[in-house]
Design a protein around this nucleic acid. Structure first.
Length: 213
DNA sequence: TTAATGATGGGCT
DNA sequence: GCCCATCATTAAA
């Protein structure tokens, strides 16, 4: 059986678009177990397979880093392999992974995952919502997996957040313009697994296969 | 089916 | 004061 290898800093210290497409198929693990309950039966862990992401970096006008280093986007300039979590629209947390060598800003927005563990916890957090819609959007997955402001700057090799290699099989990768932005809409920096049921529903006109290296 | 809108608050010019 | 890397709900067709 494959060891579920935890991705280390070197995985993230590359160009943002490369990291973004390579993240598809990887497993995100969120450990929300209260310190008191560690080692007990009251563990609160959710896992999701990453199926949709977007790349933001450097001077890209759609990126928070476009106007330089500010208090909010500072993590984008810091060491790769940490979470960049920010609050938007008055109610949602967005989960990003910091990319690029330290000093150059970059991050990958996690837009959708497929639930693979912790379904009962997700059901509780997404009460009344159809399972198909638990995690098929950045705000939705943040609720289902309980992403909090406190996750900002947390490393992606634990103890709260982990990203590990998934199984070998991974369908074709598609790319399209990014969602919900008004600048640089011609850039195809949204990546997702073709025909995956948990990819967020968006109206697509421009869409293409990713040419893989 | 698709389109429009309100919720709700922090960041930044 | 305006702008959001959104989503659930309501209205329209």
């Amino acid at each position: 059986m494959d060891s579920f290898k935890v991705l280390d800093e070197s995985f993230y210290a590359r160009s943002t678009c490369e990291v973004a497409s390579d993240l598809l198929g990887k497993i995100l693990i969120v450990n929300s177990t209260p310190a008191k309950s560690v080692g007990s039966a009251d563990a609160r862990v959710t896992m999701g397979r990453i199926v949709e992401v977007e790349a933001y970096s450097g001077e890209d006008p759609a990126s928070h880093s476009a106007r330089g280093l500010t208090p909010r986007c500072a993590p984008m300039f810091e060491a790769p392999g940490r979470a960049y979590v920010y609050f938007i629209y008055g109610m949602y947390q967005m989960l990003n992974f910091v990319t690029e060598p330290e000093g150059y800003p970059g991050a990958v927005l996690i837009r959708a995952v497929e639930p693979i563990f912790g379904h009962s916890l997700m059901q509780k957090r997404r009460k009344g919502v159809d399972p198909q819609n638990w995690t098929n959007g950045p705000g939705r997955l943040a609720v289902a997996m309980k992403i909090l402001k406190s996750h900002n700057r947390q490393p992606l090799w634990g103890p709260s957040l982990f990203v590990v290699e998934g199984e070998e099989k991974r369908g074709p990768i598609m790319k399209s313009p990014r969602v919900g932005i008004s600048q640089a809409t011609d850039q195809m920096w949204r990546y997702f697994l073709k025909d995956h049921p948990f990819v967020s529903k968006v109206r697509e006109n421009r869409l293409a296969h990713l040419e893989r290296r």
